[in-house]
Design a protein around this nucleic acid. Structure first.
Lengths: 206, 206
DNA sequence: TGTACATCAGTGAACGCGCGTTCACTGATGTAC
DNA sequence: TGTACATCAGTGAACGCGCGTTCACTGATGTAC
């Protein structure tokens, strides 16, 4: 990253022009991770990072904002896939609950800047709530509620209000995911035990 | 706010030049609250908002960044004052704990953009951890630990690890403070009961 | 097999904009004599 | 009481910068005949 101009990259072969689109998203991701600031993902910085002229980007994105949007949507898809895969790798409902939460947290901690932007954009999620469950934060929350309900149904949770329990876990994990990378000098408890404690306590696991 | 140029304001009387400094901070606060983006607090936007020429600001702040810093520090002072005042208005330790948490949350919800910037700036807190407890997030956390310890000492909390309990409450309240204003369509539980539940559950109140 | 041509994957120069910051200044007001 | 002067609270013009975006273009490569 930084200002160092990349050696001008080799032109893509005929029919492979779409490869540049992937390079653009990847470069934007590196820029975002490096700066933590979506405003630093400028069209020209992305072009510089790849070693391409700025106008070349317009063949793949209508404007600057679309690059950031693409980055966010890529993150959404990845996070939801990770969470459901983690859940489906377990059969015990308590373990399913924990596995999902851990996968969510892993995504957030592995991509702190992207996670911040994904959840921090006002209006980037659910501007029209009635048009379906496209919002991945809503999807994650639904998975959480379902997992807790399953625990209750099998007598593993004494939660009297799964919606409230899920909300509590959601905000706690969200807060942890944001604060942990930002405050490395804080004396954080060991992560594994802390997450288990949070989930167990807030979901009322017996 | 917005682009509307203020009618050029009356010049301050002699000896009252410092009033402009207050106007600058106030205008920067309005700009931050309106946009939620500290990058939108530009020197020229602040000047425009007040109705003053841009260079006039240099009499009071060395550069643009100092304006944002002043805003953050003002917020820090206010938050810590609110929290200690809330705690000191109660005598029962459980009520002291809850009152402090509620005051913290109230500040965050009343100043969502400022709160986000205050806690979201990487390195804005504790770059040199050994130089004392100047970081107000650390101060808030210490108050939280102390309050829980007090509850344990008086047999009102069965927490076996107050540091862990305090960390859990901290991240949960932080997550809630950030998500609540950002997701107004989410079916949030009633706030009073939810906070009581969070604090009671995580602090192990009997 | 040779060649004209269309297409693809980009480029370089230029635009207007808002920004932070510097600079020399101005005009009102209080103060010293 | 009158006046020169210092000080205070600002201003207006200008600078160089990086930005998003537009525009006409170029040069390699595959394809039609």
């Amino acid at each position: 990253m930084t200002t160092a101009r990349q050696s001008p990259r080799a032109r893509n072969a005929r029919g492979e022009g779409a490869k540049l689109k992937l390079d653009i998203i990847a470069a934007a991701g590196r820029l975002l991770d490096a700066t933590g600031n979506p405003d630093a993902v400028t069209l020209r910085a992305v072009a510089r990072e790849i070693g391409v002229a700025a106008p070349s980007i317009y063949a793949h994105f209508p404007d600057r904002e679309a690059i950031v949007q693409a980055l966010i949507e890529e993150g959404y898809a990845e996070a939801v896939a990770d969470i459901t895969a983690a859940r489906d790798s377990e059969t015990d409902p308590v373990r399913q609950l924990e596995a999902g939460v851990r996968a969510y947290l892993r995504f957030a901690l592995d991509n702190p800047a992207r996670y911040t932007v994904m959840l921090g954009r006002p209006g980037s999620h659910d501007p029209e709530p009635s048009r379906g469950v496209t919002d991945p934060a809503t999807i994650s929350f639904q998975l959480l509620v379902t997992a807790i309900n399953e625990c209750v149904r099998e007598g593993r949770s004494r939660s009297t209000d799964p919606h409230r329990s899920a909300t509590a876990i959601m905000v706690a994990i969200h807060g942890y995911a944001l604060m942990k990378p930002q405050r490395p000098t804080f004396p954080w408890p060991p992560e594994d035990g802390f997450i288990t404690y949070l989930v167990a306590t807030l979901a009322g696991i017996e």
